[in-house]
């Protein structure tokens, strides 16, 4: 594989992780436009552990994911009181907060960014992505997976049926944040340099779009959406300055034609 395709493949895998991090939260009927913040936590924690403390890269990524998961739980609890637009604003604010913290701390390199990470092997990124997909697939087949869908469909009726709504909602945020954390750790060790602006709100938004486009009810939808969002900009390179315009029109067209996403319909529980 030449460098171009290798890079594209890694971008795809990281986009898959990002999309799945949003997917998990959407699946529980919540929305997060703050996953770049969780990604930042994963990226910085993993980067600092591997550069300052000399921890191995895979272990650093895993630890970064755990730190992001913790943030997910902390954000998930107040998020219980927020719905719709307010939750969007709340999660955006979280990302802004994380960026500011990364900007002022010494250990994160401030505005100069964090550097000195060794490059992660592609195989590790593949392993992380496959592991996340496999675990999510299994999770959706459990009775907890069914609880998640009931909460998304009607949280009050789910509660009246005995579903622990708070647990399910916070768990979903935690899980989504953990996945975003893995994406951040992989990203930090692939580009070998991260700075606060890598985790802007537009990055958070770009994590949501593939899921809406690919289909929010299925893991395959998020993966397909990530593929489209990775490849489409490359295919449109011929259009040079008009690239983003065509890109935008295509995305709008897909959303209008397939409002439930490219892969719609949910899987049933056995």
């Amino acid at each position: 594989m030449n460098v171009y395709y290798t890079g594209l493949f890694v971008t795809f895998l990281i986009n898959v992780l990002c999309a799945l991090s949003v997917y998990v939260i959407l699946k529980s009927g919540q929305i997060s436009v703050g996953n770049a913040g969780f990604m930042a936590v994963g990226g910085y924690v993993a980067g600092i552990l591997s550069t300052v403390y000399g921890l191995g890269i895979p272990a650093s990524v895993a630890a970064g994911s755990a730190a992001a998961a913790l943030c997910g739980a902390v954000v998930g609890i107040p998020a219980l009181r927020l719905k719709g637009t307010y939750l969007v604003i709340g999660t955006i604010s979280f990302t802004a907060m994380i960026r500011s913290i990364a900007q002022v701390l010494d250990i994160t390199g401030g505005a100069m960014g964090l550097k000195g990470m060794k490059r992660i092997g592609i195989l590790w990124i593949v392993i992380f992505a496959v592991l996340v997909i496999a675990l999510l697939f299994l999770f959706e087949k459990t009775r907890y997976g069914l609880d998640v869908e009931a909460v998304a469909a009607d949280s009050e009726a789910a509660a009246a049926a005995g579903v622990r709504v708070i647990l399910i909602k916070v768990l979903s945020f935690t899980l989504g944040a953990a996945i975003a954390g893995i994406a951040g750790g992989c990203y930090a060790h692939w580009t070998q340099y991260i700075e606060p602006s890598d985790f802007s709100t537009s990055v958070s938004t770009m994590m949501v779009l593939p899921v809406i486009l690919g289909g929010r009810n299925r893991i395959a939808g998020a993966v397909l959406g990530a593929a489209v969002f990775t490849i489409l900009p490359e295919l449109l390179r011929f259009a040079s300055v008009w690239r983003m315009v065509i890109y935008g029109v295509l995305v709008i067209a897909i959303v209008i034609v397939k409002p439930d996403g490219l892969i719609s319909g949910r899987k049933r529980h056995a």
Partner: peptide, 25 residues
Amino acid sequence: ARTFQNLRIFRGMTVREHLLVAQNR
């Protein structure tokens, strides 16, 4: 356990899945 005056069905879920959710407890 209760039912609702204005039906509260889990959108998109099968009849059987409705019962499984309640059984989960």
